[in-house]
């Protein structure tokens, strides 16, 4: 019999009670977001993979501490961000610096399946300020409302709103997107 779909808090509770399948479900549902944040943070596939693995180990270890006071995605975003910062501080990984001047007009009209445009967007994301990128990731990758993102980042919701807006403006300018979402020639 097919098990009814469980929401994130249910999965966390079940995983904490020893339900291996529940934890796997959580991992499968959220690994893309965790990995994407780490990749944008480090700019390196290996570092992003290591960070993602470390995030999930920390999540597993912290399962008993999850009280449900915040959304699972908020909790996960906070662990992801802190793990990346810890790895950087510990000198175990370095973030590859990007010069914004190197990122220009990189997107293409064909967004679907265009690896080139995706890579360049990631490069552009790493060229904007870390604060703006974190706010953008919290909202765009983890789907957090401004208020929750603000809680995770330790800033007011209004600040998140400004940072996300600033990030979008910077990205659109860096990628020289036109009114059709393609590159302005």
């Amino acid at each position: 019999m097919k098990q009814p779909q469980r929401d994130d808090p249910e999965l966390v509770r079940a995983a904490n009670d020893g339900d291996v399948g529940a934890f796997e479900e959580l991992v499968r549902a959220h690994t893309d977001a965790v990995y994407a944040h780490a990749y944008r943070f480090f700019g390196d596939i290996n570092a992003a993979q290591d960070a993602t693995q470390e995030v999930w180990i920390k999540v597993y270890q912290a399962l008993p501490e999850f009280q449900g006071r915040s959304a699972v995605s908020t909790w996960l975003f906070r662990i992801t961000r802190n793990t990346c910062l810890d790895m950087l501080r510990a000198g175990r990984r370095v973030a590859t610096p990007i010069d914004p001047l190197d990122v220009t007009g990189a997107a293409s009209d064909d967004t679907a399946g265009d690896a080139g445009s995706r890579v360049d967007l990631q490069t552009a994301l790493r060229a904007i300020s870390p604060e703006d990128r974190d706010a953008f990731n919290a909202v765009a990758l983890f789907g957090l409302p401004y208020a929750d993102a603000g809680t995770a980042l330790g800033v007011p919701a209004g600040t998140v709103k400004s940072r996300v807006f600033r990030a979008r403006r910077a990205l659109i300018a860096l990628l020289s997107l036109d009114a059709q979402g393609g590159v302005a020639r």
Binding site: A33, A36, I45, Q49, T111, D114, S117, Q122
Partner: peptide, 11 residues
């Protein structure tokens, strides 16, 4: 466009 193009999937 950013919404559609932004997420690099986990390997």
């Amino acid at each position: 466009w950013l919404d559609e193009a932004q997420v690099p999937a986990a390997p």
